[in-house]
Amino acid sequence: MSAGSPRIAVLGAGAIGSLFGGLLTTHARVTLIGRAPHVDAVRANGLLVESGSGEALFRPHAETTLPDESWDCVAIAVKTRGLRNACREVAALTTPPGIVLLLQNGEGIESVAAETLPSETLARAIVYEGASLRRPGVVTRFGIGKTYLGAPLAPGEQSETLGEIVQLLERSGLPARIAHDIKREIWRKLIVNAAINPVGALAGVVNGVIIRSGALRKLLRSVIDEGQAVAFAETGYRFDLVEKTEEIANNTAGNRNSMLLDLATGRKTEIDFLNERIVHYAARHEIPVPVNRHLAAAVRAREDANES
């Protein structure tokens, strides 16, 4: 990382990308890359971050395309459906960035990025923050969660840089740590997302309602049980994530999860990197996962209906 203020580009200035980019401006030179209405609002009025503790205004740079400049870090925060295009933008830079940080949910993200970018430059950020882009230029933060960093394809390659990024995140009000086993954290978050996202999306409710509804809570626990069985068969990791998942849903009680927003606006979801990954590995080990299978099929049906 550069001495002084590192140069960071956040490619995909949605809710999480804007939250990270905004807070990081206190200790870095940040450029948000997003859609024109959001970029125009940030340029005109700054980025307003709302939270339970009040409001804060930040003034990152904002662009609609990734400037061909030298970046210490490019954080890719687009949805999984846009990951390949985002990686091609990064690959086209004249000077390769020092590190590319992937903020997507799901298992297998880094392998998609490695189709275009050198694996030794890639790192994952497993994010437990909850945020919503309320309107262009305004982000609401729902609860504070920790972010875990690691390089699953090249362990040890980016250890010094990742340590610097962790310090930068911490100083900026984003709790973070290095994950000693990032693949374990990827699977942990996979199960959490696979439980909360499709259940909330198909029911059309915010996260807190899932916990208050007996039927939805039972469904969430079934997804977790199946996911944990598959994780153990595939990786040997043992998880006990019911309490953790319900805590996350409570901490982000007012949040409409990203899959719910995708279905509501007619966009493709991330189901292929969540429940469908569990179904994929379950088939390899001949483990029945009827709840994950049915949820994935229901989400796909909603996607098809949106396109018809």
Score class of each variant (00 low, 15 high):
G52R: 05
G52C: 05
G52S: 10
S53I: 08
S53R: 14
S53P: 01
G54S: 11
G54P: 06
E55Y: 09
E55P: 07
E55D: 15
E55N: 15
A56H: 09
A56V: 13
A56C: 11
F58G: 04
F58E: 01
F58I: 07
F58S: 05
R59W: 12
P60F: 05
P60D: 05
P60G: 09
P60H: 07
P60W: 04
A62E: 09
A62K: 12
A62M: 13
A62H: 13
A62T: 12
E63D: 15
T64N: 08
T64D: 05
T64Y: 08
T65N: 02
T65Y: 02
T65G: 02
T65P: 01
T65S: 12
L66M: 03
L66Q: 00
L66S: 00
L66Y: 01
P67W: 09
P67T: 08
D68Q: 00
D68A: 03
E69G: 03
E69I: 02
E69Y: 00
S70G: 08
W71R: 06
W71K: 08
D72F: 11
D72G: 13
D72R: 11
D72Q: 08
C73W: 13
C73L: 15
V74A: 07
V74G: 05
A75Y: 04
A75E: 10
I76R: 03
I76P: 06
A77M: 06
V78L: 01
V78W: 00
V78G: 00
K79M: 07
K79W: 02
K79E: 04
K79I: 04
T80S: 15
T80Y: 05
R81N: 13
R81V: 14
R81S: 12
R81E: 09
G82H: 14
L83E: 03
L83K: 03
L83R: 03
R84H: 13
R84S: 14
R84E: 15
R84F: 09
R84T: 14
R84V: 09
N85W: 08
N85E: 15
A86W: 04
A86G: 10
A86R: 02
A86Q: 06
A86D: 06
A86Y: 05
C87S: 05
C87A: 13
C87F: 07
C87M: 09
R88M: 13
R88D: 10
E89G: 00
E89A: 06
E89S: 13
V90N: 02
V90M: 07
V90Q: 04
V90A: 06
